[in-house]
Computed example of a mutant assay.
Amino acid sequence: MPRHIVCLTFDHDHLSGFIARGMTSPTAISRGEYDVVVIPRLVALMERYGIKGTFFTPGHTIDSTPQAVLPYVEAGHELAHHGWTHRLPVTLSREEEEEEIVRGNESIRRISGRSARGYRSPAWDLSPHSIELLLKHGIRYDSSMMGHDYDCYFARQGDVAELMKPFARGRETPLLEMPISWSLDDFPHFEYMRLPNGSVQQGLMNAGNVLDNFVDDFTYMTRVQPDFGILTYTFHPHVIGRGHRMMMLERLIQRLIEGGAVFMTMEQAMGEWLARNQGARKAAE
């Protein structure tokens, strides 16, 4: 029987993304705080359709505003790791990156009672140390890379990328990669940003046009992988939470249900993928 899994994921950055960019004015802070309004609406929307999602939440969000995190933790959604600050791992030393992982897990355990199984890098930019550190600290899957669209794979460690030499691939690790895409992320489509360096991210695209793109990606999965596939969408509460976008999100859910989608958390989808690929799992280990 065909099995086409959809994961609705939310990067609950709250204030951390703005602070990491040096944007700490009252207006910037208020943009992050808008998610306090949105989170209960998102939880209610998914409850109406019987959907469990995955929230990638920085420790900074958890420790700064636990009341914004508790609604989805108490509703049984997956709480996954998104660093403690919202700094890119590739900009940190190995020691700083490990501190982010440890501190973020401590925040997750305090509010949920369990450690994170999954991780997503802030801005999706891993460092040369990330995979080693994630495995060291018990992370089972990552969702930061883009090497596939509808399938998972095992992350490699030790790639060598030099300008004047052929690319040398490292060895596969037991860390399962559950890939994402900027094209399936609400932030570049919708979020208008004037950045500290003077550049502008335009955003503000028509939600109906983005909806068509999002639905077509699912439809294409059912064609090119007719038996089994996993598709991951990424949303940010303070972005998707505006009225016309919330209506787009509900229409997306409705159309995916009509297309036969099975909604799962990332951890659940990981379990199903591993069960179907036991041989690959043993080889990676």
Rank of each mutant, 00 (worst) to 15 (best):
M1A: 02
P2Q: 04
R3P: 04
H4I: 04
V6Q: 04
L8S: 06
H12Q: 12
H14E: 11
G17K: 14
I19D: 05
G22R: 05
M23E: 13
P26I: 04
T27V: 13
I29Q: 02
S30R: 02
G32R: 07
P40S: 15
L42M: 14
V43N: 15
L45K: 13
R48P: 14
K52F: 15
F55K: 14
F55W: 15
H60N: 08
I62F: 02
D63T: 11
S64R: 15
Q67R: 15
L70G: 09
Y72I: 13
A75M: 13
L79A: 09
H81L: 11
H82C: 08
H82Q: 10
H82N: 13
W84M: 06
T85H: 06
T85E: 08
S93R: 03
E99C: 00
V102D: 08
G118P: 11
A123L: 07
W124A: 11
S127G: 08
S127E: 05
S130H: 05
S130Y: 06
E132T: 02
L133C: 03
L133M: 06
L133K: 03
L133R: 03
L135T: 05
S143D: 12
M145E: 10
M146Q: 07
D149Y: 07
Y153E: 06
F154C: 10
F154R: 05
G158Q: 01
L163T: 05
L163F: 00
K165E: 03
P166S: 00
R171D: 07
L175Y: 05
M178P: 04
D185P: 04
D186I: 15
P188F: 01
F190Q: 02
E191C: 04
N197V: 03
G198W: 12
G198S: 07
S199W: 00
Q201S: 12
Q201A: 09
Q202T: 06
L204W: 00
T219R: 14
T219K: 14
D227G: 00
G229W: 10
L231W: 01
H236D: 01
P237Q: 03
V239F: 03
V239H: 06
M247P: 02
L249C: 08
I253V: 12
L256N: 05
I257A: 12
I257R: 13
I257H: 15
G259V: 01
M266Q: 15
M266L: 14
M270T: 12
A280I: 00
A284H: 07
